[in-house]
């Protein structure tokens, strides 16, 4: 169901990502805290490693002690040792360890919430997809996209997080921590990608029937590639190329898809569902859950609700296979 993912392969240029070329590398896959590609995530990983070592040592000491007193010791010890044990193990040792850990933990908090360097990305959680608007520094109007986030490496990006109806949580494990998205309350997050690659993010706060199916891809790019890509995204949609695609565009119009979806440069200007202007350039379909193949496009339009329970988009199961093929071809052509 999910497209091949992968991480950390150098990319030649914007918009030319061949999925087949990507391989699964690194530790734990595309959505892993352990597979870091951002400065915040790296700090958290260091912290995790140190705490994990401490955890293992303390666990062995405490349980070793219990095992010894339970099974191995031959006779009772003197009572004053017991008092040393309680004061030393119960008060002194934890106070020292925890003070150090707390100071360290607190000290990294301001950095993790540092203000961004210019680019702002507004992400709105919908049931169950992501509405995305890029606001480059000084921009008056945003570049609208959906269900995929591309970021330039080497700069801190600010995320303005909102939600339409229910609470969601925005999370890209490879880049840093997560932040909840509330209706009627704005939250913010800032992340600094440091490595080029393709990663996966997912909604972390339970948000209804298809909570499990609300993901997105994150593509980190060299700044120049990113600028080129963003300029391409800002442009209106390409005209349908070929008869099949043109027929698809006609079906798109006559089925009323434009009431919910926008395809900039055509009559479709609906705001209810994801913007489809460049849907064909995205790495996934249905908010990070399907590989963008012709078959998947057709299946999605044909029976949305079976793939994503309780989704708002109706199933267009009255369309024949040839109509679905045309529609899918048109959409896939919207690079």
């Amino acid at each position: 169901m999910l497209p091949d993912h992968a991480t950390r392969s150098r990319m030649s240029g914007a918009g030319k990502i061949g999925l087949a070329a990507l391989t699964l590398t690194g530790c734990g896959g595309p959505q892993s805290v352990l597979n870091t590609a951002g400065s915040d995530a790296r700090v958290l990983l260091t912290m995790l490693s140190v705490m994990l070592v401490g955890l293992v040592i303390i666990w062995i000491l405490v349980n070793g002690m219990m095992l010894f007193f339970n099974q191995l010791q031959t006779g009772a010890h003197e009572e004053r040792y017991a008092r040393y044990l309680i004061v030393g193990g119960g008060i002194f040792f934890p106070t020292l360890v925890i003070t150090a850990l707390l100071v360290w933990g607190l000290s990294i908090m301001p950095d993790q919430r540092a203000p961004g360097d210019g680019l702002r990305v507004e992400v709105t959680g919908e049931q169950w997809w992501w509405r995305i608007a890029y606001w480059p520094e000084g921009a008056e109007t945003p570049v609208i996209a959906a269900n995929e986030i591309r970021l330039p490496v080497g700069q801190r990006v600010e995320f303005d997080l909102k939600s339409a109806r229910v609470i969601h949580s925005f999370w890209i494990p490879a880049l840093g921590g997560k932040m909840d998205m509330f209706p009627g309350r704005d939250t913010r997050l800032s992340l600094e990608p440091t490595e080029v690659g393709i990663f996966r993010g997912q909604c972390a706060e339970f948000c209804g029937a298809s909570h499990a199916l609300m993901a997105f891809h994150v593509v980190t790019m060299e700044p120049a590639d990113f600028d080129a890509w963003l300029a391409a995204q800002a442009a209106p949609a390409m005209a349908p190329d070929g008869d099949l695609a043109r027929r698809g565009a006609a079906i798109f119009a006559e089925q009323g898809c434009g009431a919910c979806h926008a395809v900039r440069g055509s009559d479709a200007s609906g705001q209810v569902g994801p913007d489809l202007t460049h849907v064909g350039s995205r790495l996934s379909l249905g908010a990070g859950i399907l590989a963008p193949t012709l078959a998947n496009y057709m299946a999605w339009i044909d029976h949305t609700g079976d793939i994503k329970p309780e989704v708002e988009m109706p199933a267009y199961d009255h369309l024949g296979d040839d109509e679905l093929t045309a529609l899918a071809t048109y959409l896939m052509g919207l690079k």
């Binding site: 805290v33 705490m51 401490g54 955890l55 405490v62 360290w104 921590g177």
Partner: peptide, 24 residues
């Protein structure tokens, strides 16, 4: 044996930034 491990991961989770990574 079980509780001590749960308690120690609790110590980790009480550190807010680490919590941001693994919450939920």
């Amino acid at each position: 044996a079980i509780f001590v491990l749960g308690g120690l991961t609790g110590v980790m989770l009480a550190i807010a930034p680490f919590n941001w990574a693994v919450h939920d």
